[in-house]
Each structure stands twice: as C-alpha cells, then as structure tokens.
C-alpha cells in the first residue's frame, strides 16, 4: 500500500466534473479500450482476427461478380478500383456505426467511472481502424499482384485517408451524444449508411452518373474522397486541387462541428445513460 499523508490543503479547489481531464493517461486509455474491444469482438470465434479480412474479401468477390457479369460495368482496372472503394467505405461504415453507438454501448463504464467521455468514441474508431489497416494491407497486395503502377500522385492518398478519418470522427462525435438522448439516431444513421452505399460511387464510377444526378457525388463527402483516392492510387493521376481543398474543408468542417457539439452535450450525457 502506498504511503504518505495527503497534503490536501495545498491542493486547489476544482469542479468535480472537470476532474476526468486531469486524471487519466489519455492515449493509453484510448489504446487499451480499442485493443480490448478488438479482442472481445473475436473472442468466441475459431478464425478470430481473420474475419476482419474474410468479410471484405467476400463482399469484394460478390460485388465483382455482380458488377462485371450482371450489371456489365466496364471500368479499367476494376479489381483495384473496387477493392479500394470497398475498403474505404467499410471503414466509414464500421467506424461511424461503432462511433455513433459508442457512448451508449459503454454506458456500463461511463455511468460509474469518471473518465473523459470522448475516449470511448476515439477508441471505437481506433478499433475499426485496426480492421482498416489489415484491409489496406490486403489492398496493397492486390495492387501489387495486378501490377498497378504507383506514381508520385499516390503521395496524396494519405491526405485522403486523413480526410476520411476526420469525417468519420466528426460524424461520430456529432451523433454519439445525441443518440444517448434520442435512440432514433441509431435507426436513422443505419438508413443513411444503406442509402449511402448506393448513392456513393463504390460499385460504379462517378462517370456512370448522369449529369443531372452528379450533384449527389459532388455533395457527398465520402464520394469525393473515394473518387480522388482512386484517381491517385489506382490511375496514378493527381486530384484536382480545387476539388481536393474543398473535400478537406468539408471533412475538417464536419469534424469541428462534431467536436463543438460533443463538448456542449457531453456533461449531460450521464443523465440519460
């Protein structure tokens, strides 16, 4: 048992609700939560972590067969095109669903222990990020196997990833505290994601979208990131600078809104958990 009488007199008065910020080792807490989450997810399965690869690979195969044979999609370098899109979309899908549900899902801890509540959102995203990293490795393998040439344009890809992460985090921080109060958000977000899958050029190219529907791609931030990622990674072309800046503005804007809303609502979260 550690010793030493407390010298409370010297310590400053604090508002207990600000206490969480002083006490935890932020980054290690996020990592711990994410790793435990990842571990628990595969705890009763024989194949374990392999599922995080099997899942996207199977869907990639399915989409590939449907798109090339049934829908007669003709896009150059389609395997790389499709796998990249599926991997990016999967991260957005998994990250945002986990992130939006994270506060409610961790109600057991959050209603009993004082800790920075955003930690739970970050770790949900990190846990989805672990799957994402594995999937990206599979993607690199496919790019290499199909002999896709990398150009200096590929250097833009990390920026696209940063945008995607900012966007996913922004959505999660924005919706997670609202979800605690209104469970409708869960159903709503589920629908948004399902509609989003078809309204985002994942299986098809943005060029397949008729002119008068193009605004859907234009205003959909995930679509913008997908289109530019394919340009720079699969086709070796630079993204348009204006478009790229606009995408960045978009993602960072949503992130800032998310941070703002989360800060405003987080104090009240425990009332509804």
């Amino acid at each position: 048992m550690p010793t030493g009488a407390p010298n409370v007199v010297d310590k400053p008065w604090v508002d207990p609700s600000t206490r969480s910020r002083q006490r935890s080792n932020y980054s290690s807490l996020i990592l711990q939560f994410a790793l435990k989450d990842f571990k628990i997810r595969y705890t009763h399965s024989v194949l374990g972590y392999t599922w995080s690869v099997i899942n996207p690979v199977i869907f990639f195969g399915l989409y590939y067969i449907v798109a090339t044979n049934f829908l007669a999609v003709k896009i150059p370098k389609y395997p790389a095109f499709l796998l990249l899109s599926v991997v990016l979309w999967n991260f957005f899908f998994e990250g945002s669903s986990r992130g939006v549900g994270s506060l409610l899902g961790r109600a057991d801890v959050l209603s009993k222990m004082v800790m920075p509540r955003e930690v739970v959102v970050y770790s949900a995203l990190l846990s989805a990020g672990l799957t994402f990293v594995i999937n990206l490795l599979v993607l690199l393998l496919l790019l290499w196997a199909t002999g896709t040439e990398m150009t200096s344009a590929a250097l833009f890809f990390p920026f696209m990833l940063a945008n995607l992460i900012a966007l996913t985090l922004g959505v999660s921080l924005l919706l997670a505290p609202i979800y605690v109060r209104f469970h409708d958000i869960g159903y709503l977000w589920n629908i948004v994601l399902q509609v989003g899958f078809w309204m985002t050029p994942i299986l098809y190219s943005e060029l397949n979208v008729p002119e008068r529907w193009r605004w859907i791609v234009w205003w959909n931030p995930v679509a913008r990131i997908l289109v530019d990622s394919r340009r720079c990674l699969v086709y070796g072309l630079y993204p348009g600078m204006r478009g790229f800046l606009l995408t960045t503005l978009y993602s960072v804007g949503i992130l800032l809104i998310g941070v703002f809303v989360f800060r405003r609502l987080q104090a009240k979260v425990a009332d509804y958990l």
Partner: peptide, 22 residues
C-alpha cells in the same frame, strides 16, 4: 454522483480538492 463529477448540478456549486476515487 455529483461529488464524483459524473453528474452536473442544475444549479448550485460543487467543489472538491485532492484526488478522488469513486
């Protein structure tokens, strides 16, 4: 829970000093 800082009061003030565990 208010002492712990898990809940925030509607009005009034709470303050503590020293480390706390709940």
């Amino acid at each position: 829970k208010l002492m712990a800082g898990l809940l925030v009061p509607d009005s009034g003030t709470c303050r503590i000093r020293g480390t706390m565990c709940e």
